[in-house]
């Protein structure tokens, strides 16, 4: 491929009408680069789940997107309440979502598990009261 891309998007907590904008832009970039459609789908599904998490739980956040010859790397970093028990949050069905989030079609405790399923590698770190950082890595070869 040879081409390299690096972009950054800001995400506003609570702004559900815009949730998915960053993931959509990332999808367009990956399509332009000619990345395999199956990899694009797994990448953007994981990213979108993370973007929805920021909108649903955090105050603000940013998504950094970078592609090189070997991999796609997406870092979702937020300022927010953080995750008390990451292991518990990775369990399917565990949720701290509000009714507002559920009305949007989310909040069933499936986001982080689905990110793990779709990403080649997922790394989550969090500090309660400060925020969460999620790194998604996808291999291109």
């Amino acid at each position: 491929m040879g081409e390299k891309i690096a972009d950054q998007y800001s995400v506003t907590g609570g702004d559900f009408s815009r949730a998915g904008y960053a993931s959509s832009q990332i999808k367009k970039s990956l399509k332009k680069l000619g990345v395999d459609m199956a990899i694009i789908k797994r990448t953007v599904v994981a990213t979108y789940e993370g973007e929805v998490n920021i909108v649903a739980h955090a105050w603000s956040g940013k998504i950094v997107f970078a592609v090189d010859d070997e991999k796609i790397r997406i870092v979702l970093e937020d300022e927010g309440p953080g995750i008390e028990d990451i292991e518990q949050a990775m369990e399917e069905g565990f949720s701290t979502a509000t009714s507002e989030i559920r009305e949007m079609g989310f909040g069933a405790g499936m986001g982080l598990p689905n990110m793990k399923k779709n990403a080649d590698h997922l790394h989550v770190e969090s500090e309660v009261g400060k925020g969460t950082r999620v790194e998604i890595t996808m291999h291109l070869n």
């Binding site: 559900f16 009408s17 998915g20 993931s23 999808k27 953007v44 599904v45 979108y48 079609g105």
Partner: peptide
């Protein structure tokens, strides 16, 4: 809007 976004992804 999230219905459309979900379909897109």
């Amino acid at each position: 809007m999230q219905t459309i976004r979900t379909a897109e992804m």
